[in-house]
Simulated scan of single mutants.
Amino acid sequence: MSAAAPCWLPTGTVYGTLLNFRRKWTLWTPKMSEAPYKAPPKAPVLYVKTANTFAPDGAAVAVPGEVELGATIGLVIGGGIDEDAGRGPRVRGCVLLNDLSLPHASYYRPAIRYRNRDGFLVCGAACVPMPLADVADLVLELRVNGELVQRVDCATLVRDAATLLADVGEFQTLQPGDVLMLGTDCLLDGARPRARAGDRVEISTPGFAPLVHTLVEETP
């Protein structure tokens, strides 16, 4: 019997992107003129998911209570320059991700203690080669215990994959092995889908093996 292929995990830094879906942007627009910022962000708003958060497909993630689910696509950075994408870094492929977080109010300054708990970035089994232009055609389906709770349409990104990559490149250099997440969408009421210990979570889209994992109760 042949050994199972190892599950994919990031080898570099993983960056998340805030406010990159039109629904979320529209809901937050009235707050963007308030203090302390008093204007919409002009550049992508990023945060980092640290290495302790990386969990493989099939993981049982320990949670202290309800968690927010974040079905998204990660762009896996390769080596060299992509001449067809505005001389941005070449993308090796895309991966399904679930960017977990404890519920919290502020999206302007994501707190590490909410987003960067152990196992809070569950990764799809493989990085799938894909032209950046095709990412907009992806629709992610998020299910909890078999029930469809969200559809994430990548055609509704504020910055599509190529634009996000180029705009981030204006202020930082992405290295081979880094991952740039496209962002997470919200539900109609502005909330993110939630789950708790005992739940089974699945994220799927054509062309990718489904990302499946469970949530278990955190032990003291």
Rank of each mutant, 00 (worst) to 15 (best):
E68F: 02
N52H: 05
T53E: 05
H104L: 02
V122T: 15
S33C: 04
E34W: 04
V95Q: 04
D118R: 15
G93Q: 06
E68G: 03
I112C: 04
D118V: 14
L75F: 09
A105L: 11
V63M: 10
A60Q: 13
V95R: 05
G79L: 04
T29N: 08
C123W: 07
Y108F: 12
G88R: 08
P40A: 15
P56V: 07
V95K: 04
K31I: 00
R87S: 13
E68C: 13
S101Y: 02
F120A: 14
A35W: 10
V48I: 15
V61R: 01
K31D: 10
P64T: 13
E66V: 02
K42Q: 15
P103D: 03
G119D: 11
T50I: 11
T50L: 15
T29E: 15
I73A: 06
H104N: 06
D84R: 14
L69E: 09
G65D: 15
L27S: 05
D82Q: 07
R117C: 12
L102Q: 08
H104D: 09
G70V: 12
E34T: 09
S33F: 11
P30A: 03
P64K: 13
T53K: 02
C123Q: 03
L46V: 01
E66L: 11
G119Q: 08
G86A: 10
G88L: 07
I81A: 04
P64V: 14
L121V: 05
A105K: 06
G80S: 08
D82N: 11
D57M: 03
W28V: 00
L46E: 01
Y107D: 02
E83M: 07
L97N: 08
T72Q: 11
A51P: 14
V61L: 05
K31H: 12
L100C: 06
D82C: 13
I77M: 12
L102F: 04
G79P: 08
N98Y: 06
P36D: 08
R92V: 04
T53F: 07
L46Q: 00
P103H: 06
P41Q: 07
P110W: 00
